[in-house]
């Protein structure tokens, strides 16, 4: 039997796509739909009970204490997004721009900035957890340089614990936006820049009028990644202040809240699989809608620019 060329071609494509498709279906789509399914039932411990429709979702949004915990966690995710956008991505932009200007030692800096990105997130969390202890490296350094009055319990004070963890994450991750921005700036056609310089544009003008508008696609990618990352924060909290978002829920995120609720922890009690699954679905929807919305808006802006 001789297969038609078209059929043969599509069979080949299927052959190569299938393994990936199976993995995505099995490990991403199926769990997603299962958690949606599970979230629509009441659960008696590990046994699925009766159908409750959107009852579990109502409890997250309207019933104490789930409501307080959920919105507290969501606020912290918001802090993650804002601080990461403002500090990490602006730093990344500055680093990327400086590296693209070929400052002395740029090769060294480019590699150094990127090294922490390669570290395991758990190892980074664990080590910085040690550095940020009251008698850890950070406070010892402050003492050494005569700034002892600024010593703090970095991970123990409600007002600064989240920001301490975000700072560690920025330390780990700032190399990534730097590199993306560097690549984007390097891709700008040289004649654009040369023309600007010939017209007598100052460095700041070149940056704001030429470079910035031309790297908007990179800005979009980084913003969407930051958004997704900020909504899915988990490991950093888990390794540095624990599943309970201690102290007093000040570092809780929807990721840790989801885990604690769905699987239970030693102290948080028995698993609430229905409510946990509902939180999982909400996290998914938030991430999806926020990213899609942002991409749609920035597409339109890109065209305008």
């Amino acid at each position: 039997m001789v297969l038609s060329k078209d059929l043969q071609k599509s069979l080949w494509i299927t052959f190569f796509v299938l393994p990936g498709l199976v993995i995505v279906a099995l490990f991403i789509l199926l769990p997603l739909f299962l958690s949606l399914f599970n979230s629509l039932f009441s659960w008696n411990q590990l046994i699925r009970g009766e159908w409750v429709g959107f009852g579990n979702f109502r409890r997250i949004f309207f019933t104490s204490p789930y409501r307080e915990r959920f919105f507290n966690a969501l606020r912290n995710n918001g802090k993650w997004f804002l601080v990461t956008m403002l500090v990490q991505n602006i730093l990344g932009l500055v680093f990327g721009y400086l590296l693209s200007r070929r400052i002395p030692g740029h090769g060294f800096f480019r590699r150094t900035f990127f090294i922490p990105v390669l570290f395991s997130i758990v190892a980074v969390g664990f080590l910085w957890g040690l550095y940020l202890k009251p008698n850890g490296l950070v406070n010892a350094f402050l003492k050494l340089v005569g700034l002892e009055e600024y010593s703090r319990a970095w991970l123990g004070e409600e007002s600064i614990a989240t920001f301490s963890i975000i700072a560690v994450n920025i330390w780990r991750w700032v190399g990534f936006p730097s590199l993306v921005f560097l690549a984007a700036i390097d891709a700008i056609p040289l004649d654009c820049l040369e023309a600007a310089y010939l017209d007598g544009a100052r460095e700041t003008q070149v940056f704001s009028r030429i470079v910035l508008p031309l790297i908007v696609p990179a800005l979009t990618v980084i913003t969407v990644l930051t958004l997704i990352g900020s909504l899915n924060v988990f490991e950093q909290i888990y390794t540095m202040t624990g599943l309970d978002g201690s102290p007093n829920y000040s570092t809780d995120t929807i990721g840790t809240l989801f885990y604690r609720t769905a699987f239970g922890s030693v102290d948080s009690g028995n698993p609430e699989i229905g409510i946990g699954s509902a939180i999982g679905v909400v996290i998914y929807l938030l991430t999806f809608l926020a990213s899609a919305g942002f991409i749609a808006i920035s597409r339109r802006r890109e065209v305008e620019l």
């Binding site: 204490p65 409600e158 309970d244 201690s246 007093n248 102290d267 009690g269």
Partner: peptide, 15 residues
């Protein structure tokens, strides 16, 4: 059941 007395007490005592 959630929230357990333990998790409530632990967070509030930290406060």
């Amino acid at each position: 059941q959630q929230p357990t007395g333990s998790s409530l007490a632990q967070a509030a005592l930290q406060g």
